[in-house]
Design a protein around this nucleic acid. Sequence first.
DNA 1: GCCCGATCATTTGCGCACGAATGATCGCGC
DNA 2: GCGCGATCATTCGTGCGCAAATGATCGGGC
Lengths: 166, 166
Amino acid sequence: MAPNQSIRSLAELPADQGSDAGCLLDGYTVESQIGFLLRRAYQRQTAIWQGCMAEGIGEKELTPRQFSALVKVVQFGRVTQNQLGRTVAMDPATIQGVVRRLVARGLLARALDPMDRRTAVLSPTEAGIALARRGVAHARRATRQTLAPLSADDRRMLLALLARIS
Amino acid sequence: MAPNQSIRSLAELPADQGSDAGCLLDGYTVESQIGFLLRRAYQRQTAIWQGCMAEGIGEKELTPRQFSALVKVVQFGRVTQNQLGRTVAMDPATIQGVVRRLVARGLLARALDPMDRRTAVLSPTEAGIALARRGVAHARRATRQTLAPLSADDRRMLLALLARIS
DNA sequence: GCCCGATCATTTGCGCACGAATGATCGCGC
DNA sequence: GCGCGATCATTCGTGCGCAAATGATCGGGC
């Protein structure tokens, strides 16, 4: 049920036991690299997110990225696709797919801008607004659950540090 | 040249300017969520990594995941594919693709285990060991560059916090 | 000896992520 | 008015990431 269980539950293994293990490669250890830790933390966050959303909203298939995009469009009211992509940190190719799926599900609407015929102007539908509203509570729950192992001070610290290396 | 430039250089935009902006959705702001920050930090790390590797090693196409897997195989000496996947936090479907690409490039070798005919035993080739050895220095450089905005204390703190939510 | 649940690896299907290339459009400068 | 560089969106190719289903094999219990 919990996504990704198979990985995390088995991930605590005996450390390297190869003949010379960590000594090789100048003691470089994958597990203590910032990239590895970021990937792991991101994986766990995504798994928790999916769990909270699936359980909270009927929409089991609303991914974190789709939700980010939807929320942004709701808050903007009207945005072009690339603008939206920049605010949620997705390149044009990526945001295109996310928007396409949201439009297909009737959560976003696309319109043509007579002033600039290159752009596609996005706006939320009623269903999109409603879903975003319902989703926020569950999103907050996912955040709480992700940060549960940390004290309030540690949470603030972590967010601040992440913001500085973003 | 720097990967991902288009996103990051444009990402600092005026905040929400929709009619009621942040007030909508109970003041939920995508940018301050842990998931968003993790994704951003991970993006930046990956971009830096690619830059360092491309410049350091001829192998421009050696991704962070491929490198993690390669290093682990070198350190283990011999591992089965799923074992490897668990230590680098990739599920069987994912590690399969990573290994396939590493084998195709002659960095890993696969052997059949006569004791357990289900498994594929992986071991590094000479080229794989050499590449891992050369790569470590550049990987360290990528780590330094990623953490450059932080003091030594902050770096330790960040790594510790990430480890606790992984 | 045989069965049954566990493990190994693969495949399929979907969703990001991004570089690179394309074609339409915009707007500035002349 | 025209031209040319910038911007908008799309497409293609490749590489993760994971759920789910599949088929081979293993091992313990009987």
